[in-house]
Design a protein around this nucleic acid. Structure first.
Lengths: 129, 129
DNA sequence: CTTGACCTTCCAGTAACGGGAAGGTTCATA
DNA sequence: TATGAACCTTCCCGTTACTGGAAGGTCAAG
């Protein structure tokens, strides 16, 4: 199938699919007219990529996961390691964002938001060392 | 003062300070030898930038905040708007990450992580439509 | 035969810097 | 006075994961 259909079936934009080919994630066949020709297996991989990217894995981590997926002899522990460290990373991001949220919320509530120029938000941004 | 001291006082790397100059956020003087020469006010702005970047504002939002900060006639409501929409954005990010966290945690717990090749994580990534 | 929807490659830009090269300046010290 | 370290300068490339657009080839329908 052409890239348009592969795009529709995988949910990835055609541009992204070409990019994934550029960086060596997939290698579709070519038809006689030079068009890329995707197999069902290719689409399967594209969906795998779409889903793992959506779960926050970097493209490089996706590459590792895809390699593990295709390696029938790999241990599940290898995959679990990648997922676990990603989980730790997500936890850290959530903690940071939550902290940031508290600070910002405090500032937004402190600001009366009227026509007058005095603003606790800017004062805080300005004075804090 | 030279960029090194401005860096030390603001907490921003010299590279970042030069970058902020490139994109027009600050305009320090130049000494006779061609070195950048930062005033206390410049350092004040740099600290402002450091802090607002740390609060998750984009460089462009920082530019707006800095402009508002320097505009003595601005209404505090203008500032509050920017901060509020940033707050909404942070909330969304936290929600997304939390959801993602649940999915990943579920997968990690489902995976026994041993030497055997069967792995629920990869199965999920592969099968999910 | 033409029109429009596909497809191709290539080039450039995004955000926000970081690394490093090649070279000038300043200051303390031997 | 020389020299070496520690500054500073500009410039260019690399990063991440794409997205947009231009110029042009292909294909099916009317």
């Amino acid at each position: 199938m052409n890239i348009g259909e592969a795009s529709g079936r995988s949910g990835l934009p055609a541009k992204t699919i070409r990019y994934y080919e550029d960086i060596g994630l997939i290698r579709p066949d070519r038809s006689g007219n030079g068009y890329r020709d995707y197999s069902d297996d290719d689409v399967h991989k594209l969906r795998f990529l779409h889903r793992s990217r959506g779960l926050g894995f970097s493209v490089d981590e996706c590459r590792q996961l895809l390699a593990l997926y295709e390696d029938k002899s790999r241990a599940s522990a290898d995959v679990k390691d990648i997922a676990s460290s990603k989980l730790t990373e997500i936890d850290r991001k959530i903690r940071e964002l939550t902290e940031l949220r508290h600070t910002l919320e405090h500032l937004v509530h402190a600001c009366h938001g009227n026509e007058r120029p005095d603003c606790p938000i800017l004062e805080e941004l300005s004075e804090h060392t």
